[in-house]
Write a protein that binds this DNA or RNA. Structure first.
Lengths: 327, 327
DNA sequence: TATGGCTCTGGTATCGCTAACATCGAACCT
DNA sequence: AGGTTCGATGTTAGCGATACCAGAGCCATA
């Protein structure tokens, strides 16, 4: 920076201003500085800048997994919105392991991010403690059951699952099974299970057809269907914790030659891109994953600007998308 | 840090050592420092540390897209391997836009990452210039046609596509179409197209059945199939630039009631998880996406340790996985 | 007992930038 | 003319760590 300043015939402070707040520098000087910087290939060192200003313009995102998940949408929303403001994303995957999450938060905090976006509202106690102490903007995403560390954006998984269950029941299915998520202890998935079972119970149907699965991904749909059929051979519909599992069920039906939606109705959760593509179309819950990311970004940005002492909680809702997999 | 030092009755320098190089501090002192740090909730400020040591322990990854892609595996391999060494990932998506890539590299360089992982070997000239000037470890991934900025890990897309094409031809298909990638200008996809066409040509078949598509994702398979059929109603096999498109073709076949592999043979590229799940199984090229990420991490780490002045180029190869979508 | 080599600890000088305040003309007002 | 305001620039003092060198004990060896 000193070299650039010398070459442009100004002080280092003016160079700094020419980059950070160009409006505060006269046009002539700004141009001289830009030319000097270009000639010398100068790239401002943000590490030093961050240290001096104690603002890093980095946001950390901590997600359970990227594979086959709606978190990608959230991440994309987040990073798109943040990039516009010159922020960057520090990413960590935790594999649904609370210990990993705690380690990730600890590691990331040392870099003094301006904000941290967490997935879910269920954390190791040390995570809560560290983040409270760090005085950093925190957004918990996807789940909406507090208490929250700071801010939150998501929707009610229970309400969504309840609505989906009611739709299945309303279509006349009577022996409805539910395929759980491999990490069934995660609150988000507990809520989904509860919502579905509540819908069955209120219709006087058996809410006991629940299959726990060990397999991740599509394979979970297959093994879940197997275990549901061993519980109830007359099973006529399946609701899955995620679309990926539901697609696995559809594939298994195709393999068995079972017509969907007549032999078996199928519903998923998440409305992944593939839900609209797979024949005969998968009925699912559309969640606003991208919107969650954008909203999280907005909350953090607004907090940076100093306004907003309160800690908002945003419900972005959901929508049931009806397709051919349900009669 | 000064507070911790005071509380532990040592100098700040010793606190620094207790964290960075515990072996150089006596056990008694180390424990006092750890206790003091815990009591005060001290989290070392890596920003300051980075500035002083001019090593950031951050690696930047620049990928075209995360959705429906094999880059996820690479990213995961990269981040898993790096996390073990205490490094973190700075992520940027560019949407297959070279201008965006240049902007991303410029933005990221200011944070002085210890390494940058790029996708492909085709970049805006400014990217090459910036990275050369920055003296940072660079790994170009996936593609293996130089010249490279620094190091590279990938495989030959042409050889893979050639092998896949030969397999299709070997199974007796005679009117073979190819569905291109939406961003057909990307070198990696040019190579795939060339490999397939070379296989067709050497078998004396028409290499002209190539469909360009505009749609991303599964929809591209559907529209690609449409346009191939309008070119050749007697089409008997389709090779796709990616598995996602191939799955789109399989879905369209199911919709039309066309038996696969008899009415139409289908082959994809990438061996995504779904390829093994979708009936009747998708024949595809298995690429070692995760391995590419791990190898890229290793290269950067080794470069950090000071060894390895040379700039290695690693070919991780590929493998054809034969499944039911080809007779 | 003197010497050299260890291991452990401390002091000092940066790393490259920005916050905060100081300065200086020029423009504007009464 | 004098005072006030404002915009553009410069000066100074850190931000919170680490690199580097120096010094203090301690042991083994001759």
């Amino acid at each position: 920076m000193a070299d650039v300043a010398r070459r442009a015939g100004v002080s280092p402070m003016t160079v700094s201003r020419a980059f950070k707040t160009p409006a505060t520098v006269s046009a002539a000087v700004r141009q001289r500085v830009e030319e000097a910087a270009a000639a010398l290939g100068y790239v401002p060192n943000l590490v030093a800048g961050n240290l001096a200003s104690s603002r890093s313009r980095m946001i950390a995102a901590v997600v359970p997994t990227l594979a086959n998940s709606n978190f990608l949408g959230t991440l994309k929303g987040l990073s798109d919105r943040l990039r516009q403001e010159g922020y960057q994303l520090l990413l960590t995957e935790t594999g649904y392991d609370p210990g990993e999450e705690a380690a990730a938060v600890a590691a990331v905090l040392g870099r003094r991010p301006d904000g941290i976006v967490l997935t879910g509202a269920q954390h190791h106690p040390s995570v809560t403690a560290m983040l409270r102490a760090a005085q950093v903007a925190v957004v918990e995403t996807w789940d909406l059951h507090g208490p929250f560390i700071d801010m939150a954006v998501g929707f009610s998984h229970r309400a969504a699952a309840l609505a989906l269950g009611r739709m299945v029941v309303g279509r006349g299915y009577r022996r409805v099974g539910y395929i759980d998520f491999p990490h069934a202890g995660v609150r988000r998935f507990q809520e989904r299970r509860r919502g579905v079972r509540a819908a069955l119970r209120e219709a006087g149907l058996d809410p006991g057809l629940v299959a726990g699965v060990a397999d991740e991904g599509y394979a979970g749909g297959r093994s879940g269907l197997d275990s549901l059929l061993s519980m109830a051979g007359d099973l006529d519909a399946v609701i899955c914790a995620t679309d990926v599992q539901a697609i696995g069920v559809l594939f298994e039906c195709a393999r068995r030659g079972w017509p969907v939606p007549d032999r078996l109705g199928v519903a998923g959760f998440g409305d992944y891109e593939i839900a609209a593509e797979v024949p005969p179309g998968l009925t699912s819950v559309r969640t606003n994953g991208r919107g969650i990311g954008v909203a999280a970004a907005e909350l953090i940005l607004r907090r940076q600007e100093g306004g907003m002492a309160a800690a908002p909680v945003l419900d972005l809702g959901f929508e049931i998308v009806s397709r051919g997999s349900l009669r």
